Lab assay of single mutants.
Amino acid sequence: EESVKIVRLVKNKEPLGATIRRDEHSGAVVVARIMRGGAADRSGLVHVGDELREVNGIAVLHKRPDEISQILAQSQGSITLKIIPATQE
């Protein structure tokens, strides 16, 4: 059973501070990098390897990473992410 986590981040004009990529094996959209000091890093709630399912209620599974980045870039104020946390080894 996948544990889905709802994360709310507050982002002003600054970038979210995370990059995403598509996992070639599973097809999932995952967090590739977290930039120090960005909104994602400061929240402490988003981690490399987390699978991104939704951004502000928009399912991202069938979107290209550049489309998802665009949605994230255009979002201001509160951003709600639905993520499946990376499995902690």
Rank of each mutant, 00 (worst) to 15 (best):
V4I: 13
K5V: 15
K5L: 05
I6Y: 14
I6F: 10
R8H: 14
L9G: 05
V10T: 13
K11L: 15
N12Y: 11
N12M: 11
L16H: 02
L16V: 09
L16P: 03
A18Y: 04
A18N: 02
T19E: 15
I20V: 13
R21N: 07
R21H: 10
R22V: 14
D23L: 08
D23W: 02
E24N: 11
H25V: 14
G27D: 06
G27S: 06
G27L: 02
V29S: 07
V30A: 04
V30R: 13
V31Q: 02
A32T: 14
A32D: 15
A32N: 12
A32Q: 11
I34M: 07
I34C: 04
I34Y: 00
M35Y: 08
R36M: 07
G37L: 02
G37K: 05
G37E: 04
G38A: 05
A40K: 01
A40R: 00
D41L: 02
R42D: 04
S43C: 08
V46T: 00
V46M: 09
V46R: 00
H47K: 10
V48T: 06
V48W: 03
V48S: 06
D50F: 00
E51Y: 05
L52H: 00
R53T: 11
R53C: 11
E54Q: 05
V55W: 02
V55H: 01
N56D: 09
G57S: 06
A59S: 15
A59R: 12
A59N: 15
A59M: 08
V60D: 02
V60C: 14
L61N: 13
H62V: 02
H62I: 02
K63I: 03
K63Y: 08
P65W: 07
E67K: 05
I68K: 01
I68H: 01
I68M: 03
I68Y: 02
Q70L: 07
Q70H: 11
I71A: 07
S75D: 10
Q76R: 11
Q76I: 10
G77E: 11
G77Q: 10
G77R: 09
S78K: 11
T80M: 10
T80Y: 08
T80A: 07
T80E: 14
L81S: 04
L81C: 05
L81E: 03
L81H: 04
I84D: 05
I84Q: 08
P85N: 06
A86S: 12
A86D: 07
A86E: 05
T87I: 12
T87L: 12
Q88H: 11
Q88T: 12
E89G: 11
E89H: 13
E89K: 15
E89D: 13
